[in-house]
Amino acid sequence: MSFFERIFGKKQSSAGIAKDRLTIMLAHERVDCKLPYLDDLRNDLIAVIKKYTSVDDVKITSHSNKSIDMLEVEIVLGKQ
């Protein structure tokens, strides 16, 4: 990126965009690879939750850092 582009906040280089897109995409794909049971788990959870509430979807997000891998399950009940 040239000096002027930097000053005027011109668009990011295409290589930079490629890198960002790849990093995000692969973060997702690697999780899918590592947790092949994710879809089954989600379906089982929904089945259980449906027994007690009218909710028919759960949101599962995975986080990981150096020391731990974590799954976060979010159930939105809404307002009665």
Binding site: M1, S13, S14, A15, G16, A18, K19, L22, T23, L26
Partner: peptide, 12 residues
């Protein structure tokens, strides 16, 4: 800045 560099690819 129009092609991923060696470092970019290796980091990924």
């Amino acid at each position: 800045g129009n092609m991923l560099s060696i470092d970019d690819v290796l980091n990924i």
